[in-house]
């Protein structure tokens, strides 16, 4: 029984003609699986490797390098909320914002709230320095995040 749906499998294989090597589809495949299942399980790694003619350890090697994908036994919440800690944000209150979010959510960066709604993360500079301190809501930048703005964003994500 496959852990990857037919839809995900076909979206992965549809990318193959774009590249001269199958291995190049590793990162796009990991993104597809991670977005859909909120984690990349060991079984998923084996199946991705099968689709790309790789050994599972090759997929695992690439995946773990980025420290971006949640592993077997860990899972992203519904929304991933990143607090930028780059210098531009740090100079405008990023550390205070990070402490505020950790306190508000009752989790440390890297953890997910008990209700599974929010995974809090720190990020290195996200390139939103014109809106520092900034956050990333999954892959969308949220600018000028005051504590009030953070509170209303969190309230929205908890709904």
């Amino acid at each position: 029984m496959s852990v990857l749906s037919d839809d995900i499998r076909s979206r992965i294989t549809a990318l193959l003609p774009r590249y001269p090597s199958k291995q190049a589809v590793t990162l796009p495949a990991l993104h597809l699986v991670h977005d859909e299942y909120r984690t990349v399980s060991n079984e998923a790694i084996v199946e991705i490797a099968g689709l790309l003619d790789l050994h599972p350890s090759e997929v695992h090697d690439t995946m773990t390098f980025y420290e971006f994908f949640k592993h077997d036994g860990d899972k992203l919440g519904k929304t991933r909320l990143w607090v930028c800690r780059g210098l531009a944000c740090m100079l405008r209150g990023a550390y205070e914002l990070q402490d505020h979010c950790e306190h508000k959510l009752g989790v440390k960066c890297g953890q997910t709230t008990a209700d599974g709604k929010i995974t809090l993360e720190f990020a290195e500079c996200i390139g939103a320095c014109d809106g520092a301190p900034a956050c990333l809501r999954d892959d969308v930048q949220v600018m000028d995040v005051t504590t009030e703005k953070a509170d209303s964003l969190i309230a929205e994500l908890q709904r």
Binding site: G86, L87, A88, E124, C125, G127, A128, C129, D130
Partner: peptide, 11 residues
């Protein structure tokens, strides 16, 4: 990849 901290013109 524009990741050099404090850089955002490419974006």
């Amino acid at each position: 990849d524009e990741s050099e901290p404090c850089t955002y013109n490419n974006r």
